[in-house]
Design a protein around this nucleic acid. Structure first.
Lengths: 199, 199, 199, 199
DNA sequence: TATGAATGAGCATTCATTCAT
DNA sequence: AATGAATGAATGCTCATTCAT
């Protein structure tokens, strides 16, 4: 009788086992041998589950992102005001909990920028769209509830791109930008402006 | 009589000769042999002028950036309103003229994110600071002239990071974001909000 | 009650199932995994029936050769003149019916020439001897019946080697040599020469 | 000043240095590392001069073949009768002097049969044609001088293919066929037959 | 100063073979 | 008896770097 293995499950296990490695080293300088050793499998086994080093990163980013989204959704459900929700949403860019995901996602984006394969670009586009719509939805709810004026919509959506920029460029901007403070200040500015106008 | 070659001059020549190559291919897939051939020099000669492929990119990004800055400064001098200046400043992120520089700078950032060497981080930080201050200065002048309320400062500075994000992530956001329109709309939003408040 | 499988029978089934694969691809580029899949068995199972890829080819060449020999023998029994028999015998080298066997046998010989294992050499020697004696027997019968002079014996036996050469080298001689015509012309030449002498 | 190397010359040197290795081992079981070591060069250097292991064999077979052809031509010039020339020509298939070339050429043919790349097939076809025409020319001269009847032409040309067959299959036919004796006997048979007819 | 021939460390990848089930 | 998941030895190949000229 053949040994039956849940391929999808084992993929996840291998990816998860490599998390620290992938967070610490850059994708290019990690070797297949290192991955195999870290995951406690043979080199050949790696190729049974992944075509590429890239596929491994895909898998892991996906896993962490899904977990992150679930956590975030739960938290958002408990937030009261729209201002709070917006801030909570943007906390992805600085919160400790998302640190690994951020490091990984940043590397992933960088990698895709250097050696653009369609699959990577597609994945990135999808991620961008997904989060972009999420923040849009929070804003729309805020407008519907009268907590936010329509005029603020573009500002806050633009913030998403701003966040991306901050976080992508964050290696270089450490010390120049204080992500948490700057983002929150930005949100407050907008809400304050809009509230004044509202009066 | 020995032929005296200005080392600094030759560095620039080599870098410039490789512009198209660097714009078209990713840094990793370019080999020293290819660079040497493109520049019409020997492989050994390359090492007389550069330590690394990275140094070559440094040199080129620097060259293009200086040229770009000079052009921009000239244009800014001719702009009348602060709103116009701000828009002009941000046009870096989409104007055709800066296309090569953008492609190159994006690759440079990505490369630095993947294999972070201190020199690259430093260079990036410096670039970030430089532009950050530039926009800050435009804003301060606008405030001094009464064209802009202090409250807008943070918003507009944040925009710089937003632009970075847009452009760094632009591979994936093609079609999702219309850089020129989105940036200008953002500026207009802010100026409009502030003007209203002003009244 | 255990399912009793005739090992010998299953060997044949596996070999036959791989015929097209072996005809189309070169032995080296076929993997055990491919063989197993083609035969609809597991990789491990392959090793229950064969030691090697070579053994598989052995088995198949043997099978096809035996079938071919049986067909040929039947045909020869119906041939009338010795000249006809000789031509019929040599038709192995070009007849459509033997095409797969020829392709396979040629690969087998080539493989044996590159990585000569004793078993392969022995098998080849045996094949060579077998056919060599067969043509000898046809000739001897012709001589006994007075249809052929003893002097022609060596010529016609030499032809067998000639046929081997033609067919082994046939990849390269396509267009240079027309196997069917050349072989038949050769036979006719010899019979004509000998007949003239006979008169 | 660059080190100037005669690339063509060095190719030959490397190929020649590997002669014994290539004669003794099969192409597949020789590694690049082994070749480099044998030739006293680095692995990388090998790739400066050859694309493939195959190219190395090409080069060597070519070299040995050219040398062989020159020697043979000289000898043929000294042969008196056509019968002698024919025998001399065919001595390629057994003479000690051509032993290495034969072993190599046989491997080359076998290799080309297994993994047929166009370049190899072309080369083989060219070789076949070249020798085929050579023997044709000897025969034509013999006919012109009246030493050979036109009727023998096809027979002797056919012999070339026979020789190929003998030599290609020679691994298996050792002991079954005595190449030298069989070939010479064949030639004598033909000449005798033709002479008788001539009378 | 300029060169490019020489180099070999280093890595991805393949695949025959084993063996637990 | 049958299986296919796991394995790692083995190897081709690239390319940054050196250094004799």
């Amino acid at each position: 009788m053949p040994i039956v293995v849940d391929k999808e499950q084992k993929r996840k296990e291998i990816a998860l086992a490599c998390k620290d490695l992938l967070v610490q080293k850059s994708i290019q300088e990690i070797t297949i041998a290192e991955i195999a050793q870290t995951a406690g499998i043979g080199k050949g086994t790696f190729y049974e589950y992944f075509k590429d080093k890239e596929e491994l990163v895909f898998e892991l980013v996906n896993l962490l992102m899904q977990a992150h989204n679930a956590r975030k959704e739960a938290k958002l459900a408990e937030a009261h005001s729209t201002r709070e929700k917006i801030k909570l949403f943007y906390s992805f860019f600085y919160e400790e909990e998302a640190s690994d995901l951020r490091v990984l996602y940043r590397k992933f984006i960088a990698y895709a920028l250097l050696a653009p394969k369609q699959a990577m670009i597609d994945f990135q586009t999808e991620c961008f769209r997904f989060y972009y719509r999420w923040v849009e939805q929070i804003i729309d709810e805020g407008i519907a509830k009268g907590e936010l004026l329509p005029v603020a919509k573009e500002l806050i959506k633009g913030m998403y791109t701003m966040g991306e920029g901050m976080f992508v460029a964050s290696l270089a901007t450490d010390g120049v930008i204080a992500l948490k403070e700057d983002l929150n200040a930005f949100v407050d500015h907008i809400f304050d402006l809009v509230e004044k106008e509202n009066r």
